[in-house]
Simulated scan of single mutants.
Amino acid sequence: MDSKREFKALRIYEQEGKFIRRIEKRKIEDLPEGEVIVNVKYSSLNFKDALSVAGNKGVTRKYPHTPGIDASGIVEHSTSEKFKIGDEVIVTSYDLGMNTDGGFGEYIRVPADWVVRKPQNLSLKQAMIYGTAGFTAGLSVERLLSAGQTPEMGPVVVTGALGGVGSIAIAILSSLGFEVIAATSENDGGEKELHELGAASRISREISDDQSGRPLLKPLWAGAIDVVGGNVLSTLIKACQPMGNVTCCGNIGSGDLDGTVYPYILRGISLIGIDSQNCPMELRQKVWDKLASEWNVYNNKEQVIESSLEELATYIDLMLTKKSRGRVIVKL
């Protein structure tokens, strides 16, 4: 492959403490080392991408940088026996888009161990409608089921219900027969979207973010998928029914977790951590295969926005101000 080939990418520069966005031309030879070069067809916007654009050093240490923790596309060069030219693949997680140039460019070069073979019954576009958010939602559901969660136990709460992870988790859980309670940070609209996703009801911030300080609350749900962290996660644990399961995959509210041991030793609650970034490949492929088959239920077109690189700035700013809804995919 011609190392001098040019392609378009969104680059973030650090200048005197400020972070500047530019769309510019790059060359294949500028990409980091790796066994596989992928011509990116689609990417998607995630909270980590927005943080990288904003200069969060906990996500990206060195600039200039190309964000984009998700990518789907076609292999154009490979020195690995695992992949050949023309293979359609998915690359998410690991270090992509964090400190390794990511999917907001028309080409990426990555280690072969980061690459997932795209299931045949999932298009490149559908793969990015799911992306890291969908994979995280699927992994959360998979871990709940593996822990023994069943619809018969009672309702499951999903926080961040109008966001990427939350909306897809609701759709999957609902398709599996679970009664889903949607928890959002605000109550100004969204009822139509939540109903179409499959949510049975919605709770206010006052319920999902208890401020009483009590170590245990009246049981209100049988399990939960949380993207918020902090006091919201603490509330979900304290109000969970005996032998219920709560997954944790995010910290958009806070990275802190206050509480006591009582929910665990008096009710047998299980807190399950979700690490989508370093998930083992066998489990990763299993979840992607389910997202391409029995869990391929997220088909609400109104919740999916397709953006170009040039239009992406608007959606990044919405995400940084926690006003984004559904999924934003990027067509390269």
Rank of each mutant, 00 (worst) to 15 (best):
P64T: 06
V36W: 06
V38W: 00
V36K: 04
L45C: 01
A54F: 07
E24W: 09
V38R: 04
R22T: 13
F47I: 11
T66G: 06
V36R: 02
K48D: 05
G58F: 12
E29H: 14
N56K: 10
T60Q: 00
Y63L: 12
V59E: 03
E29W: 13
A50M: 08
G58R: 12
K62Y: 14
S44F: 08
K62H: 13
K41Q: 13
S52T: 06
D30H: 14
S72P: 04
G58T: 11
G34N: 10
A54N: 08
D49A: 06
H65A: 14
K41P: 02
L31Y: 12
V38A: 00
V53D: 01
E29L: 15
R26N: 13
I37Q: 03
N56G: 08
K27Y: 09
G58V: 04
D30P: 12
S52A: 15
R61G: 11
N46W: 08
E35P: 03
G68W: 04
E24M: 07
R22D: 13
G73P: 03
K41R: 13
I37Y: 09
Y42N: 01
K41S: 10
S52I: 04
L31R: 10
V38K: 01
F47K: 07
P67I: 04
H65I: 12
I69D: 00
S52Y: 09
K25L: 15
A50D: 03
V53H: 02
Y42L: 06
T66H: 07
T66R: 02
G58A: 12
D30I: 12
S43W: 05
D30S: 15
S52H: 11
R26A: 14
V53G: 04
L51Q: 11
N39I: 00
V59F: 10
P32L: 14
K25Q: 15
V38I: 09
T66I: 15
H65W: 10
K57F: 05
K57T: 09
G68A: 02
G73C: 00
K48G: 03
I69P: 03
R26V: 11
A54S: 13
L51T: 03
K41V: 11
R22P: 08
N39G: 07
L45Q: 01
T60L: 04
L31T: 06
V53W: 02
N46A: 09
A50T: 08
Y42H: 05
A54I: 02
V53F: 10
P67M: 05
